[in-house]
Structure formats: C-alpha cells, structure tokens
Computed example of a mutant assay.
Amino acid sequence: MKYKRFILFFLFCLTLSYACPAAGEPEKGVPKVKASAVCLMDVTTGQIYFEKEGNKRREPASLTKIMTAILAIENGNLKDIVTVGKRAASVSMGQDIGLRTGDRLYLEDLLKAALLYSANDSTVAIGEHIGGSHEVFIKMMNDKAKALGMKNTSFANTNGYHHPNHYTTANDLAILTCYALKNPTFAELVRTKEVTITWLPPEDNGTTDEKPEEKVVREKILHSTNRLLESDFEGINGVKTGTTPRAGNCLIASATREGRQLVAVILNSQNRWDDATGLLDYGFNDIKPVALVEKSEYVDKVPVEEGVEKEVRLVAANKVEVYLPPGELELVQKKIHKTVAPKAPITKGTKLGTVTYLLKDKEIASVDLVANQDIERLPWYRRIFE
C-alpha cells in the first residue's frame, strides 16, 4: 500500500512539472535572449514587437558608426576624395586600416571600412571631412539623434570609444537603424560581405614627371565582421557588429521576408548571433497580421443638419491590418475624430472623420471614416418648420 501511494504521489508531481512552467521561465512564444538589452522593430512602421531594457542607457561600441555613416552619405559625395589628417592617423585603439597622415581615399571606401570592417580610424577621417572638424561632426551626430527622436542618446565620438557622455539605448539604435536602412546606399553597404578599398595616389602638384598610372596604389581587402551575412539564415541583409570590454558583444541584424523587414538590436550578449536570429525568427513567425477594422465596418455616427435623416453612420473606408505580438490586440486603443454635425446633402463615401489606433500611446494605424449612405437635404418648407 505504501508503494502504491508513493507511485501515485510521484506521478502527480510529474504531471505538475509538465503542466506548470518553472518560475522565471518566459511565456510560450516569447523569445529567450541572453543580452542585457534588446529591441525588435519593424523597419517600415517603427513598431516595437519585443524589447528588454529597451530604454536603459548602454554603451553602443561600434554601432555608433551607423550614425557616422548615414550622416556622411547624406552630407557628402561617395566620390569625394578625403585627405587623412593627424587625428585619424593617430587612432590606434581597436580595429583600423592603418591610415597615415596625408593618405587619400574615396569617401565611399572609408565608409566601407567603417561599416564592414569597423575601422575606427576611418570614422575619424569621415567626421573631419564631413564636419570640417571632429567637434562639429559630433554636434551633427547629436542634432541628428534629436531629429530622429532618439531621446536617450548622446554621442561623444565617431566610433564608440568609451566616454561618460557616449551612450544610447536598444530602442534608440533601432530607430536609427530603421531610418538608415531606408537609404539605398547604406542598405547596400551593410549587406556587402567583402570589398577592396584603394588608396589614391598623392595629389599631383606639378613637381613630378611620374605619370599617374605609374604611381603605386595601395589596396586592402576587407571582410564584414557580421558573420550572419555568411550564414544560411533566411532573408538576412545587414547590419553591424560592435564590441568593447565595457559594451560587451553587440549586434544589429536585419532581415527581410515576404516584403517585411525587421531589425534586431542586441546589446551586451553572451551569444549575439543566436539572440539576433531568435528575435528575427520570432518577429517573422509569431507576429501575425490582425484586422483592427474591416472595410465598411460601422465605427460611429454623427448628427446631420437639415437632412432627411437626423444622423449618418460612419464606417471605415478601408480594412486596417497590423502586425501585433500575441495578446496585444486587447491593448489597442482608438481615438475617433469626426466632423461636427455636417450639413446635408451628404454623399455616400464622403469623409467625415478618422479613427486612429494606438498601442502604448504610439500610433500604429489610422483610417478615414466615411458616410455609409446618401442623405438628402430637407425641402425648404420642412427646414422652416423644423
């Protein structure tokens, strides 16, 4: 009898262990990440699908170079010839391409060195060329961050060296990267696996008889530090790695599937590659489209002045569909803005308002509200009496 009771008790405990998740385990479907901070964002809509410590300030390491690069692309010409100054030539910390004072390279090659190879010296040369000085360029970086709505970001250098006033967040980096990826030049650079950059001949001041084609030109082959570009992960197309002792192993990865592009920001991770691919897979596989309203679905009504009908029903002009994480549909709120008592006659389909849908106080969709029928104006004698 004792043994029977023991066996029954054991089976009961075993059943509980399978039925109930262990304390601290994530909910089903929620990605498991080892990173200190992460953010998964939709490039087109800017909607955040998942975050962990998304607004906590952290060091970005070489992810800083995304801001350096997009400013250079927007404010320079890829065929600009950059002459390297002493400041860039003196950079020795971290990865570099061995720039020396007086070296001449195309801006495009310096950008490739910064984004693919994460060369620290190239970003200083880029900043001084675009801004005229390092200090001016840093101001440009911070001004751009504010313009993009990066509320918890401050830049103190072009490459991500440790500095007390150099910090950002996973959410801010996602905002920056989504913005940068909409630039075709940037998008092309960050999905490139290998490039060859070239040092141009010294500027000819007319004192030499040597022909330009006879001058020695130095070349260097660079490979992307983003290992995911060499993987078989579906749709991967960028973006950038970053590593320092203080920041840890960081990565921003992007992928596109069936027309949707997502960005995963990984900060201080024990395995940034698995964290990134896990987040991206979650975004593509678990975030499903949800209909907020169907076309011609009733939303509200509004009174009508001088109409044969006293009110008109407002319906959605189109179907509204958005991608939402599991369980967030009930968190969506809507705000209705409608015309105050329109005057008849009213034609079916006339816009009489809008409805905006918000998730966590951020707009995720909107649609016009239109009249669902024609409403004629009252005859003059009825208008007099009524």
Rank of each mutant, 00 (worst) to 15 (best):
residue 1 M to Y: 14
residue 4 K to R: 15
residue 8 L to D: 08
residue 17 S to M: 11
residue 18 Y to A: 11
residue 19 A to G: 09
residue 21 P to T: 07
residue 21 P to W: 09
residue 26 P to R: 08
residue 28 K to E: 14
residue 28 K to M: 10
residue 31 P to H: 07
residue 31 P to D: 09
residue 33 V to P: 14
residue 35 A to D: 00
residue 36 S to H: 07
residue 38 V to Y: 02
residue 42 D to E: 11
residue 43 V to E: 13
residue 44 T to F: 05
residue 46 G to Y: 01
residue 51 E to F: 04
residue 53 E to N: 12
residue 54 G to F: 05
residue 54 G to R: 06
residue 61 A to C: 12
residue 64 T to I: 07
residue 70 I to P: 12
residue 77 N to H: 14
residue 79 K to P: 04
residue 81 I to F: 12
residue 81 I to L: 12
residue 83 T to H: 11
residue 85 G to I: 14
residue 87 R to C: 03
residue 88 A to Y: 06
residue 90 S to I: 02
residue 91 V to K: 12
residue 93 M to N: 14
residue 98 G to I: 11
residue 102 G to S: 08
residue 104 R to N: 13
residue 104 R to L: 13
residue 106 Y to H: 15
residue 110 L to H: 09
residue 111 L to F: 09
residue 114 A to D: 08
residue 118 S to A: 13
residue 123 T to S: 04
residue 123 T to V: 02
residue 127 G to S: 15
residue 130 I to D: 10
residue 133 S to T: 12
residue 134 H to K: 09
residue 142 N to M: 00
residue 142 N to R: 00
residue 153 T to C: 01
residue 155 F to R: 05
residue 163 H to N: 14
residue 170 A to R: 07
residue 170 A to V: 06
residue 174 A to F: 05
residue 175 I to W: 04
residue 176 L to N: 06
residue 182 K to W: 04
residue 183 N to T: 01
residue 183 N to A: 02
residue 185 T to G: 06
residue 185 T to E: 13
residue 186 F to Q: 02
residue 186 F to T: 01
residue 190 V to C: 03
residue 190 V to L: 03
residue 192 T to L: 04
residue 192 T to F: 06
residue 195 V to R: 06
residue 196 T to P: 10
residue 199 W to K: 12
residue 201 P to D: 15
residue 202 P to C: 04
residue 205 N to M: 11
residue 208 T to I: 10
residue 209 D to G: 13
residue 212 P to A: 11
residue 214 E to S: 15
residue 218 R to C: 06
residue 219 E to C: 01
residue 219 E to R: 08
residue 222 L to K: 08
residue 224 S to T: 14
residue 225 T to E: 08
residue 227 R to Q: 13
residue 228 L to G: 03
residue 229 L to A: 07
residue 232 D to N: 10
residue 234 E to H: 03
residue 235 G to E: 04
residue 245 P to E: 10
residue 248 G to C: 01
residue 251 L to G: 00
residue 252 I to A: 02
residue 255 A to L: 01
residue 257 R to G: 00
residue 258 E to P: 00
residue 259 G to Y: 09
residue 263 V to W: 01
residue 264 A to C: 08
residue 265 V to Q: 07
residue 270 Q to W: 04
residue 274 D to G: 04
residue 276 A to E: 06
residue 277 T to K: 04
residue 277 T to A: 04
residue 277 T to D: 05
residue 278 G to V: 06
residue 279 L to E: 01
residue 284 F to R: 05
residue 288 K to Y: 04
residue 297 E to G: 10
residue 297 E to P: 10
residue 297 E to M: 13
residue 299 V to D: 09
residue 300 D to H: 15
residue 302 V to K: 12
residue 304 V to E: 15
residue 306 E to K: 09
residue 313 R to K: 11
residue 317 A to T: 06
residue 319 K to F: 12
residue 322 V to Q: 10
residue 327 G to R: 09
residue 327 G to W: 10
residue 328 E to T: 13
residue 330 E to R: 13
residue 332 V to I: 09
residue 332 V to N: 08
residue 335 K to M: 01
residue 337 H to L: 07
residue 340 V to K: 11
residue 349 G to A: 05
residue 349 G to Y: 05
residue 351 K to F: 05
residue 357 Y to L: 01
residue 358 L to H: 11
residue 358 L to F: 14
residue 361 D to W: 08
residue 364 I to K: 08
residue 366 S to P: 00
residue 368 D to V: 00
residue 372 N to G: 00
residue 374 D to E: 09
residue 375 I to K: 02
residue 381 Y to W: 14
residue 383 R to M: 12
residue 385 F to T: 15
residue 386 E to V: 14
